[in-house]
Computed example of a mutant assay.
Amino acid sequence: MLTLKGQELVYNTTLMLVKSIDLSSNFLEGEIPEEIGSLILLGTLNLWRNQLTGKFPSEVGNMHGLETLDLSNNRLSGQIPETLASLTFLAHLNLASNNLVGRIPSGNQLQTFTDLSIYMGNLSLCGVPLPRKCPEDDTFTATNAKPSNEDGSDKSWFYVSMVLGFVVGFWGVFGTLLVKKSWRTGISDSIPEESLLKLSSQLENLDLSYNHFRGHIPQSLSSLTFLSHLNLSYNNLVGRIPLGSQLQTLSDSSIYMDNPSLCGVPLPKCLGDDTFTATNAKHSNEDGNDNGALWFYVSMILGFIIGFWGVCGTLLLKKS
């Protein structure tokens, strides 16, 4: 029954066919009737800005075709009913400025509403998407965490020991590599002259930088007549740079950078005996590499043993 301009109108069968109700900005009082759930074809319900009180009727969950629901700016109290999560077509929701309390129901459709303003003014609401956790969340977590910790104590010890063992073993090897610069690269021999001879005479680019090549630059390098880009920097090369019409065109001294025992064009002139310098540099580098290799294997073995027993030793001590 609806009273309109002093006339009482009764709708019996046609009311269920209503698709939209907008009674916003009135002075409606009282509770939302439970019978509203019978409006199964209703698509829009707007009761914004009234003075409605009482609980949020759970029967709203029966209105499966509802797309828009606005109950904001009223005085509704109690919890949001779980049945609201069953409204799969709900696209617009506003429950702001009420006295609703408790956890916001979870549901596939409700999780799409990430705008916090639709729950604004309900100071006792909690749960996603609001930043306030519900008090029972902490209790639930603590209650379930206790038996979980008891059951998983062995797993915790296993993972902790595994991580510690890995870290110690890893840094036992690679930490030493970081300390000793000469171990960071793998090529540490002289530039093979035989290989250069086999290279095509049409080679245009050759980059052997950032290695540990030692000894003289082979004279055969000057036979690469098409060579236009060369980089031998950051090695341990010694002696005179070979002469050749093509090599003399590479006037950028940076291509020989960090080879302190190199000399000749485009670097400063050679002052001493090239053979003597090269021989002593060779022996010095060989001795350093032998010591480096020894320390490398020692640190690798120690790192493996510590890392291995960090895991297995703990498992053996903790028999359970």
Rank of each mutant, 00 (worst) to 15 (best):
174 F>D: 02
263 C>R: 01
302 L>T: 01
48 W>I: 03
8 E>F: 00
190 S>R: 09
119 Y>Q: 02
57 P>L: 03
154 D>A: 11
14 T>I: 06
252 D>C: 07
261 S>Y: 09
27 F>K: 14
167 V>E: 11
47 L>I: 06
290 D>F: 13
260 P>A: 11
281 A>V: 10
31 E>L: 06
161 S>M: 08
222 S>N: 13
6 G>H: 04
284 S>I: 07
198 K>S: 12
121 G>I: 05
63 M>S: 01
245 S>M: 03
1 M>C: 08
17 L>V: 02
83 T>Q: 15
312 C>W: 14
138 D>W: 08
7 Q>P: 00
89 F>D: 00
12 N>Y: 05
211 N>A: 07
292 G>D: 11
265 V>R: 05
188 S>P: 01
8 E>D: 07
8 E>P: 01
273 D>H: 06
63 M>R: 00
4 L>T: 13
287 D>E: 12
129 P>G: 00
109 Q>C: 09
206 L>N: 08
257 M>G: 12
26 N>P: 11
122 N>V: 02
207 D>A: 07
240 R>N: 09
96 A>V: 10
117 S>F: 06
147 P>I: 03
156 S>Y: 14
304 F>H: 00
169 G>R: 04
301 I>W: 00
11 Y>R: 08
317 L>P: 01
153 S>C: 11
49 R>M: 11
284 S>F: 08
305 I>Y: 02
307 G>Q: 02
103 R>H: 14
261 S>T: 04
105 P>V: 10
171 W>F: 15
220 S>F: 10
316 L>V: 12
86 S>R: 14
318 K>M: 07
149 N>G: 12
64 H>Y: 03
193 E>H: 01
111 Q>Y: 01
320 S>A: 09
296 F>P: 01
38 S>F: 07
62 N>Q: 09
